[in-house]
């Protein structure tokens, strides 16, 4: 005995009721539950759909789907970090590394020409941060719009459009720069600041432009069903 389309829809609803927000996971769990229910019906055809569903759901343990959702989040965040790192490494290969080094040199020259290095540095830092958080807001809006359009939420899309865990790390450079006033007076200090600034700009560029631009490609590779929708 096979499940009807209405029963499949009920399974999707069931996963949503059990806090599975994302369509990719809903689909996988729905198919799993459906297979389980059909197998139970083969053994005992008198079992009702809801009874069979409860039996199958119990197999996921007392936390239900929670563990599956959490672990999926961890796995996809790891995948995203891998993507960021891959793009980051690109800037340190030939010929891009020439551009990276030139950028460091240009910022170093600008900083050494100016009297108040720390002030200029703080302004540049503020501009980078404005782009970082401004971009985050714009991408969140885009993500919500895409969700509304399709009526479905995709976990990897959400990770891409919210920088994964990177948004939470932004306090680190802030902490670092509070203590930078002293070192901005030495030559090595200015080199260090130039390197940090360029690395931040690169990270901004990767998180804000490069990865979102290729998001469709990454999402299709992660979810073959993404294009079917």
């Amino acid at each position: 005995m096979k499940l009807t389309s209405d029963q499949i829809e009920r399974l999707y609803q069931f996963t949503r009721q059990h806090y599975v927000e994302y369509y990719d996971l809903q689909t996988e769990l729905t198919d799993h539950l459906a297979n389980g229910i059909e197998a139970l019906w083969n053994e005992n055809p008198k079992l009702s759909f809801e009874e069979a569903l409860q039996i199958e759901f119990k197999k996921f343990g007392i936390f239900g789907f929670m563990n599956v959702v959490e672990e999926r989040q961890i796995a996809l965040t790891k995948k995203y970090n891998g993507l960021v790192w891959q793009h980051f490494k690109d800037f340190f290969k030939l010929p891009q590394i020439l551009g990276t080094l030139s950028a460091i040199l240009v910022i170093y020259r600008i900083l050494t020409f100016l009297a108040d290095v720390y002030m200029i540095f703080m302004i540049l830092f503020a501009v980078i941060m404005i782009f970082f958080f401004g971009g985050l807001i714009v991408m969140r809006i885009k993500n919500n719009r895409l969700n509304k359009q399709s009526g479905k939420k995709w976990l990897f899309q959400e990770i891409i459009f919210s920088y994964g865990r990177f948004a939470g790390f932004s306090y680190l450079p802030m902490q670092l720069f509070i203590h930078l006033e002293g070192i901005s007076k030495t030559n090595y200090g200015i080199i260090f600041i130039s390197v940090v600034l360029v690395l931040m700009i690169l990270l901004d560029y990767i998180l804000l432009i490069r990865i979102p631009k290729k998001s469709e490609e990454y999402l299709t590779a992660t979810y073959p069903e993404y294009k079917l929708m």
């Binding site: 769990l29 197999k59 996921f60 343990g61 599956v68 672990e71 961890i74 796995a75 996809l76 790891k78």
Partner: peptide
């Protein structure tokens, strides 16, 4: 168990 299988599959996929 179902609760262990999918996390393992997703981890292998992410790797």
């Amino acid at each position: 168990t179902e609760g262990a299988l999918y996390p393992a599959l997703h981890k292998l996929e992410a790797e």
